[in-house]
Nucleic acid binder design. Structure first.
Lengths: 349, 349
DNA sequence: TGACATGATTGGAACGTTCCAAATATTGAA
DNA sequence: TTCAATATTTGGAACGTTCCAATCATGTCA
């Protein structure tokens, strides 16, 4: 219908003021008279004016586009979906809008979407990098003064802010919990050994083992893909061991689920015959049977926190790399065997 | 460092051509000589030029921003996360980028994010509307020539394209499957009665009941919140009925999981003592115990399809409302009791 | 050789906003 | 009434791109 979009000049004409004045009320300047302000606002409503952020952004010399980019490595994983929701929350209420892209662990896709986002003039970026991302990949961004916050997986060597969960402490407490239940041979199952997260969690495992006064045995750490399938695979190897473990801490919840599957396939019941604990506390963890004992990392909280950090840097105009590790806590459910007796009691009550 | 961003003029100067020529190579025009093209490209690489889509978009009169907006009502639900991934896939490979926002069923948030997206000049919108969204809410968008595709929940009365799954056929086949297993009293559990989706699924239930030669009993349809909690609530009411049902089709998978919980709380085992089938086939469905028999709707496929439809309309420049319903299929797992014998056989093999 | 088509290139003039410096209106005090 | 101070308003000139019409080389044909 009305082919031409209505512009600030149309408003000015209709309200009998100059475009500069209209611009002023747009930015909520205190310079404009209350009367004119309301008149202009009324006219804007009447004509159905929509602000053209692109044009504004052009003049404001690449400063404030009010767009943040978010790129995650696997959105189908509810962990990252939650993370995105957390980011969206704070970003939205700060009047920003988010570009969200999924890389599916593809480093090429990641490069593409980051480039695309940059062309669109994002004022900041939150990224959970795909595996094997080069720390230098974000160099151009920060050189251009665009703050970057890396979450979940850290990028050693990159001069950017990051938020990771306390992988070490989390794994340590998991091991100590199992040791407290009387387990002497506790395996570490799953995960790719070439990642920083793996190293951290393994280190935590080792500290836990030592803190519990047990010996660290190399054969008890069995790597695999960090997926359900990887979990069952690792289980097979663990069970085949001469001196079998009686419990396992897993690289993440997906692996833990796989371990449960693998156990059942061998007529072992997770929780009673073999204790398993996961890491992440994904949504499915508490609904599973048996409910998964796991280390809760609150991805939504990480998302919120990351967004806050990013917004702070955007507003400050200066991005000095800051790195925080967020606390985690062990949530004890059924798969570790700890609450068996309690649960039975509750049921019969 | 280099404070000023490098522009097309800088490139022109450095390459010894005019800005118009640079612009031409930017758009891959066939008008420019092969020699100049490669020289210009080289210079762009050297100076680290980044295209300013905002500026381009400004000149191109609101035409092609290469941004599509995606708003979903609940991103924490993996159904919608999958949907978003589907959209992202096709949108990304078409060289677009997506604004993704989560409304969490808040109609105010929805209004805000849509307005914000509009200010940013999206060239199209895919939306799974929050509950109680007014069909007129998207009127201004389509009036401005911005194509809108509604997915999952349709918006009767709105003149926009939509993609919904075949709720009726899906529910009907679920009921017929249960009837085929010998069930005579089949309940319909969960969901809010004031939604279009509920109506469709209920209609499918009714057709299924009648097609199986059973009677339709009003007391067997029990509404509730479409959530896990709603499921247990509905289960309570169903069990309390004078003449108990022996099976239930549920509004969605969340309700179905709740029904399983409710059953167990009453010492009934889902699958053997009472058959339950869900709707959606969320990721957790196959991992659950018992694995959930459910109607699979392939959210990622809906996302891809919706994105394709939207892109088509964007490219056509003309948005004529088109509505497609996607096929669904019943996937039989354990919770309906059908595969019990088979499963046992497999295990002992 | 001139006329003409074709191939490459190029200066402005937009696009819709914000910013600056300057102009104008209003007010209070002398 | 006049002046200065303050409160409001206002024309350009940007911002980085694309588009249009126009220019400038070439090569071709009669």
């Amino acid at each position: 219908m009305t082919k031409a979009r209505v512009t600030v000049i149309d408003i000015a004409k209709a309200a009998g003021v100059s475009k500069s004045t209209v611009s002023l009320v747009l930015q909520g300047s205190s310079l404009v008279n209350e009367g004119t302000r309301s008149k202009v606002n009324a006219v804007m409503r009447d004509l159905g004016y929509v602000y053209n952020r692109g044009a504004a952004n052009l003049r404001q010399a690449g400063a404030k586009s009010r767009i943040v980019g978010v790129v995650v490595n696997d959105l189908t994983n509810s962990f990252f979906a939650e993370l995105a929701v957390g980011v969206d929350m704070v970003v939205q209420s700060a009047g920003f809008v988010q570009f969200l892209s999924n890389t599916g662990e593809s480093i090429d896709r990641q490069r593409e979407v980051v480039a695309s986002m940059r062309e669109h003039g994002i004022s900041g970026l939150i990224v959970s990098p795909a595996r094997a991302t080069d720390a230098a990949d974000f160099k151009p961004l920060v050189a251009a003064g665009i703050p970057v916050v890396v979450v979940v997986r850290n990028l050693p060597g990159a001069k950017v802010s990051s938020i990771v969960s306390d992988n070490q402490a989390g794994m340590m407490s998991a091991v100590q919990h199992l040791a407290g239940l009387g387990h002497k041979r506790i395996a570490f199952l799953g995960g790719f050994p070439d990642t920083a997260v793996f190293d951290d969690r393994l280190a935590g495992y080792r500290s836990g083992v030592e803190a519990a006064g047990l010996d660290y045995h190399e054969e008890l750490v069995i790597a695999s893909a960090p997926s359900r399938a990887g979990g069952v695979e690792a289980t097979g190897k663990a069970i085949a061991l001469g001196h079998r473990p009686t419990a396992a801490v897993c690289f993440n919840d997906a692996v833990a689920f796989g371990v449960c599957d693998g156990l059942r396939a061998r007529r072992l019941e997770p929780g009673s015959d073999f204790a398993v604990v996961g890491f992440d506390d994904v949504i499915e963890a508490q609904a599973a049977v048996p409910a998964l004992t796991t280390v809760s990392v609150d991805p939504q909280g990480i998302g919120r926190r990351g967004a806050q950090m990013l917004l702070k840097q955007i507003n400050a105009g200066k991005a000095e790399a800051e790195t925080v590790t967020t606390a985690v806590r062990l949530v004890v459910r059924e798969s570790c065997g700890a609450s068996m007796s309690i649960k039975i009691k509750q049921d019969s009550a």
